[in-house]
Amino acid sequence: MIAMDIDGRRVVTEEGRTLLDAAREAGIDIPTLCHHEALEPFGGCRLCVVEAAPADSRGPAELVISCLAPARDGLVVRTASERVKEARRTVLDLLLARCPTSDVIRRLAAEHGVPRTSFPESTDGSKCILCMLCERVCAKIGAHAIGGAGKSRGKRIAAPFDLAAEDCIGCLACARICPTGHIGYEETDDERKIWGRTFRMVKCEVTGRPLMTEEQRSFEAKRAGLPEDWFTKCPESKRRETAETIAKAFEEVR
């Protein structure tokens, strides 16, 4: 058991938890942009920085990244000190300059006292904040279809060599996890277009509703060790079918 002082409150947590985990469990909000519980902490957006120092420390507190810093017994943590707020404001100011058209960033920045950026705004219209959630979720799923290309401010998310993403399964996990809606796709009942690829949709045998792409079906079936024809119907059809089976079974028993 670990006991810490977070913002003057005693917070108890377990070994192996991060400062962010502990704070959130205690209902203390720390903003994040590149964090997702399905993925390994990344530490890129720097929004979740907090000040931390051991209780007996005489020196200045350290500015640490709460999504990665492990909880330690006796730690004194400040999640909203002036130093922390200054760092967060600057990060949001910088992100707002990069993505002035992103509603998510605009709202978050405004909430932190940055109504407009103090830096020259980018004019490329990109909403990508390079949080890499898309790359990381794609890797987590096992597709490894997209990733960061280039470095510095020219870094961007791309398929290898900017060609159609060969390993993409069209699952849209990247687009869905993207906090700013930067990753675009097109979709009809028959097909889905993303990362330069066009995927055919598997449709519900009963209702004809699109379920997933053919590639996603193969991929997921293989991972789960299930036959491909396991994935054939929409939940609603399966519910009705199950209910009918049960009703029939009871009929026969009676």
Binding site: Q216, E220, C234, P235
Partner: peptide
């Protein structure tokens, strides 16, 4: 992550 695989996988 909202990929929806579970919804299609559940047989019921």
């Amino acid at each position: 992550i909202g990929c929806g695989s579970c919804a299609v996988a559940c047989p019921f």
